[in-house]
Write a protein that binds this DNA or RNA. Structure first.
Lengths: 229, 229
DNA sequence: ACCTGAACACCGTTCAAGT
DNA sequence: ACCTGAACACCGTTCAAGT
């Protein structure tokens, strides 16, 4: 925003930090070489001295998010160091989810990168280590990694709403739309009615993502316990 | 590509079909109002008569993919109409996955849309119906929907590779990169070694996505069977 | 009803040039 | 070493105008 004279020189780190702030505030679509530069009090072309173009910038953003997730997961894991594998993985995944909730654009960004950010592999390595300590074979650990999928990185699966991205979502419109097609969706309507029954807020926003997230984790953990070989 | 004189007039349907063909062939990034129009033998501005701008075009694409998934899933379900819920859901999800494999850009597109395409709800409705017939409560059906997540739409979770998008992925580069950091990733390296052991092709491409996909399905199905209430 | 030309406000990126 | 101005080839979109 307010850019005085460039006190400290531009750097890759400063550019990435500004990019994250910009995207947190205004969404991925607002991230433009020109806008980013303007926010840094610099011309767009200056960015090319520190970053290999727009794609490189996006790669940097992806790596930064993964690093944040890994740091949060590592910290969470440290607090339950002596516990069993599922408690430790659970804490890790929940910490990752907290990071994702702070950066709702992250799933969309990671999905759009042509290659998995390198930091992801370090993150996987820790998960495999925990599974091995828990007595799992490499085979099951491998399958577990696939089964966790984006859950391991904290992606909450949005069932009734935008899958990822930022942007303003109009709950009322979505609800009206759904109501309009209610007679064509008898089972969905009935399910919503049944579930809204004991929810505080009987709207489309009735899914408690935290509860659903943890339910899915337990489903997978239970299954893995049983598949242990 | 080759555009003669406009024999049939432009229409929303023709524009969407051309857009899908273009994106299948060259990826989402190649989809431009101007390029799409050129392929149809028309000026870019003509598209605005049939579509509400680029976002509307992308929404149309998303709806088209969902419709294709739903049709495939419905057809697959019909072949196992008398069977139990898990066989029926399995066939549905595998059919959806086959569609996704034909349109590798689809996960990225759906993730980028600000709102869930309306067709998704009809698809969910069928899943809930199947679960209800299988004796599940609405509560568990609801949780199952969340637990399935993008699996229900056939999204294979890519663990070691691009999450979605098109684009050329260089296996060799990725493999070299991974090898370079092997000493920092002892568990991942060991797992790959152990798993590659009995694979035909001991490379990064060693994950058999079909097998992993089905393993995850069974994990979830088993868990739901047990959670039945 | 359907399509277009010209124009506008934006992009990312290059390249030679400044300091 | 770090930054910039001017320029290029692209975007999506508008609007008044054509047929």
């Amino acid at each position: 925003m307010g850019a005085r004279r460039p006190r400290e020189p531009l750097s890759r780190e400063r550019a990435l930090a500004a990019a994250i702030a910009l995207v947190d505030a205004e969404g991925l679509a607002a991230l433009t070489m020109r806008r980013l530069a303007a926010g840094l009090g610099v011309e767009a072309m200056s960015l090319y001295y520190h970053l290999p173009g727009k794609e490189g910038l996006l790669d940097g953003l992806a790596e930064a998010v993964i690093a944040e997730i890994e740091a949060a997961a590592e910290a969470a894991d440290a607090t339950v160091a002596g516990d069993d594998w599922r408690t430790r993985l659970r804490q890790r995944f929940l910490a990752a989810r907290a990071v994702m909730l702070r950066h709702p654009w992250a799933p969309g960004l990671l999905g759009s990168r042509p290659t998995v950010p390198a930091g992801v592999y370090a993150y996987y390595d820790q998960i495999i280590a925990t599974l091995r300590e828990g007595g799992f074979s490499y085979r099951i650990a491998h399958r577990a990694l696939h089964a966790f999928g984006s859950l391991a990185l904290g992606f909450a699966q949005e069932v009734f709403r935008p899958a990822a991205a930022g942007g303003t979502t109009d709950v009322d419109v979505a609800e009206a739309e759904l109501a309009a097609m209610a007679e064509k969706l008898p089972h969905l309507t009935a399910m919503m009615a049944a579930e809204a029954h004991d929810a505080d807020d009987p709207t489309l926003g009735w899914c408690d993502s935290q509860v659903e997230f943890e339910f899915t984790l337990d489903l997978l953990f239970d299954g893995l316990e049983r598949a242990r070989g």
